[in-house]
Amino acid sequence: MSTTTAQGVRGAANALVAAFAEGRLDDYFGSFAPDATFVFHTTPRRLGSTEEYRALWQQWVEQDGFRVLGCTSSAQLIQQFGDTAVLSHDVETRVATHAGEETLHERETIVFSRDGDDRWTAVHEHLSARTAA
């Protein structure tokens, strides 16, 4: 993988994580393609679009008082496959709900696709719980 590609993917990934951590939802959801898909261990089914994910997020806010308080990414691995790149990493996220604050330890894979303007856009996210082992 070229240095330019690695920097582009890492920059897109870091911007996505920063927007998530800082609650900049327009920037966060704007990091995904409209037809991106999402698989979360906390939801019973795959989400078929960014719009569907954003609607679920709004439901979490309205029903649970959901807020992201911070998020850090570590152990990043980026692999390129032509105009596709895969980021796998560990994430530690602090969230708040009506029930209180919680720190989540998860691992995540985000698939990025490079468009004609050499911009890397997220097209799939898979989030799973990180085991203690």
Results as ranks from 00 to 15, higher is better:
Ala13Gly: 13
Ser128Phe: 00
Ala75Asp: 14
Ala15Met: 06
Leu77Gly: 10
Leu16Arg: 12
Thr37Pro: 05
Asp27Thr: 06
Thr84Arg: 05
Gly70Val: 04
His98Tyr: 10
Gly48Thr: 09
His105Glu: 15
Trp57Ala: 11
Gln63Arg: 13
Gln58Tyr: 05
Arg67His: 11
Asp26His: 00
Glu52Ala: 13
Ala12Lys: 01
Thr121Cys: 07
Glu92Ile: 03
Val39Ala: 15
Gly23Trp: 06
Thr103Gln: 07
Trp120Arg: 02
Asp115Cys: 04
Gly48Cys: 04
Asp64Arg: 05
Gln59Ser: 12
Ala129Asn: 06
Asp35Val: 12
Ser73Asp: 13
Arg130Trp: 04
Glu125Ile: 03
Phe38Pro: 08
Val123Thr: 08
Ser88Leu: 13
His126Lys: 02
Gly70Ser: 02
Leu87Ile: 07
Phe66Gln: 03
Leu56Cys: 01
Val91Gln: 12
Thr93Glu: 14
Leu47Ile: 11
Glu106Ser: 12
Ser113Tyr: 07
Phe32Ile: 07
Thr84Ile: 09
Gly48Arg: 10
Ser49Arg: 03
Thr3Phe: 02
Leu87Ser: 08
Ala55Asn: 07
Arg130Lys: 14
Gly23Cys: 12
Ala36Glu: 13
Val95Ser: 14
Gly48Met: 09
Ala19Ser: 15
Phe20Arg: 08
Glu92Gly: 00
Thr3Met: 09
Arg130Asn: 05
Ala15Arg: 09
Ala55Lys: 13
Gly82Gln: 14
Asn14Ser: 09
Ala6Tyr: 10
Val111Leu: 05
Leu87Asp: 09
Ala36Val: 10
Trp120Thr: 00
Arg107Trp: 06
Val86Tyr: 05
Ala55Gln: 12
His89Lys: 14
Ala122Ile: 04
Asp64Gly: 01
Gln80Thr: 08
Phe29Asn: 04
Ala15Val: 04
Asp117Ser: 09
Cys71Arg: 07
Glu106Val: 11
Val68Asp: 12
Ile78Leu: 12
Gly8Thr: 02
Glu106Trp: 03
Ser49Ala: 06
